[in-house]
Nucleic acid binder design. Structure first.
Lengths: 195, 195
DNA sequence: CCTGATAAATACCGATCGGTATATTTTAGC
DNA sequence: GCTAAAATATACCGATCGGTATTTATCAGG
């Protein structure tokens, strides 16, 4: 790992939470230099512009969550357990990226939807990937008879994602973890009803 | 209605969709003057600063939706119909404020959560009010035996809001109305299962 | 240890930011 | 239609915006 690569990583590590909290327009280059202790010259030596930092920061935040979720999915034996991974590790995610501004997919979707096509495309790709992953799990569950045949995998995937993202918004806005638990309890019942 | 009041209304009418789309930091005074055709002097003659415009714009957007939803709730006879009002009038809302940037509650919650305490407080109040309204309906449904006693009104309210807001994020990001229909179909089943 | 290359800091650019003091226009009451 | 008040436009402020050209410091290879 060359010096420049290390610096690039360092910049992302320090600025990714800021972009997640303040959004694209709300994060200034001054924020970036303040968070890293570096100067503008150094930032622009490693990134060609603010857009590139923002896009890389999103990738950084997303990878952080996806890798953690995927690891936990692989630890679960049953399909229903895999489907509920996000429900169960949210508390752990809270000590990581999610705590610093919430879900980057949701944040970027809302922040960039009408303003930043490139960032929006990243958020879109993230949701599509997440949806496909859940559909994969559901179809595996149908194949192993853990889930009934009469369910629509796409509908299940979309419903799960909607409840999680809506739940994150509510629990973060209200600062009430109990709300998250109530919503996730509904989600658990939903997943268990698929059997 | 005095001239100033008319102008104030006119400014909100023109800028409320912009704040909803671009967020607080992303909306500049230049955006405001461009959208209204007025000058900075006129804007600051009617509002003391950008904050005041943003807060009033949120109120404007919220009232727009709430009044429409409330009218439709009153038209519905059964509690379950009332609970599903948002599901059914979303298409109509699409031709109004929601089309111009999505749900202002969700947008403001995400946009202002870590940056703008006053705006966050408005979003929080909106979610609390919405939650209380649904709980009211559920409790009325329990009283009239339309809904079973063993359900938790708060949990129902939070679950409905989460699914709607999550659904709005997904369907707007993906630009697929079919996704909205699938998620709302899950919500309908959920509400009908309360009986 | 020296040296060329790489990386970071400095100093600066024009444009735009939110905001204001003042001048001009428009309004409403008589 | 005149006039005072209210509303809008003009012109300007310092600060910050994203971005760049140049200088200085640090690095790795011989």
């Amino acid at each position: 790992m060359t010096k420049a690569e290390k610096t690039r990583n360092f910049i992302l590590e320090k600025t990714a939470p800021i972009f997640n909290m303040k959004g694209y327009a709300g994060t200034s280059l001054n924020d970036i230099t303040a968070a890293t202790g570096l100067t503008k010259g150094s930032i622009y030596g490693n990134f060609s512009n603010k857009d590139e930092v923002a896009l890389a920061a999103f990738d950084y935040n997303l990878h952080n969550i996806v890798s953690r979720v995927e690891k936990e999915i692989n630890r679960q034996k049953e399909v229903k357990g895999k489907l509920l991974v996000y429900v169960n590790i949210y508390q752990h995610l809270l000590s990581g990226v999610v705590a610093e501004g919430g879900c980057p997919i949701l944040n970027t979707a809302i922040d960039a939807d009408d303003t930043h096509p490139e960032l929006k495309a990243r958020a879109l790709k993230a949701v599509s990937g997440w949806k496909n992953r859940i559909m994969q799990l559901v179809e595996a569950g149908i194949a192993s008879k853990e889930i009934n045949t009469d369910h629509n995998p796409e509908q299940i995937a979309l419903t799960i994602i909607a409840m999680i993202e809506g739940g994150i918004m509510i629990s973060r806005l209200t600062a009430k973890p109990a709300y998250w638990n109530l919503i996730m309890d509904s989600l658990k019942k939903y997943v268990n009803s698929l059997g």
